[in-house]
C-alpha cells in the first residue's frame, strides 16, 4: 500500500515528529511504500542541520535524513519554510524544498494520508 505522511509540528517541542517517525518505520518494516513525507507549518524545522541535540538524545534531523537516503521523498513546504527562515543551505541531505503541489500529489496518489500534528 502507498502511504503518505504529513507532519505539522517542529522537532522536540511536540511528539508528532516522533510518532510519525515510529509509524513510518513500522510501515516500511511491513513492506509498504512510503509515497512521501511532507513537512508543513512548524514541521519544516524538523530537517535543519543547525540542530545540535545533546549526545544522549535522538537527532531528529539526522533520523529523517537517513530515511531520505533510502530513497523516500521527503519534502519541506517552500512557503512554510521561507516564512520560518528554512532554506536549502540549512537542510540536512536527502530532503528537498518544494511546493504545496507535492502535498497535493501525495494526498491524491497515496492510498492513505496520515497526518501528525498538534
Amino acid at each position: 500500500m502507498k502511504i503518505a505522511v504529513c507532519i505539522y509540528e517542529g522537532p522536540y517541542n511536540h511528539e508528532a515528529s516522533d510518532s510519525a517517525y515510529n509509524f513510518i518505520k513500522a510501515a516500511i518494516d511491513k513492506g509498504h511504500e512510503i509515497q512521501g513525507i511532507f513537512f508543513y507549518h512548524d514541521g519544516v524545522y524538523n530537517v535543519t542541520k543547525l540542530m545540535e541535540p545533546p549526545q544522549d538524545d535522538r537527532h531528529i534531523a539526522n533520523r529523517w535524513s537517513a530515511l531520505g537516503a533510502t530513497g523516500i521523498d521527503i519534502v519541506v513546504c517552500i512557503a512554510a519554510a521561507k516564512r520560518r527562515g528554512i532554506v536549502d543551505d540549512v537542510l540536512v541531505p536527502n530532503v528537498r524544498i518544494s511546493g504545496l503541489g507535492q502535498l497535493t500529489m501525495m494526498t491524491i496518489q497515496a492510498d492513505r494520508m496520515v497526518v501528525f500534528g498538534d
Binding site: 508543513y40 507549518h41 512554510a80 504545496l100 497535493t104
Partner: peptide
C-alpha cells in the same frame, strides 16, 4: 495560531488540481 491560514493556502493550491 497559523494553522487555519496556512491550511487555506493548501486548499487554494489543491483546488487547481483534478480532485
Amino acid at each position: 495560531s497559523i494553522y487555519v491560514y496556512e491550511g487555506l493556502e493548501v486548499k487554494l493550491i489543491m483546488a487547481a488540481y483534478d480532485a
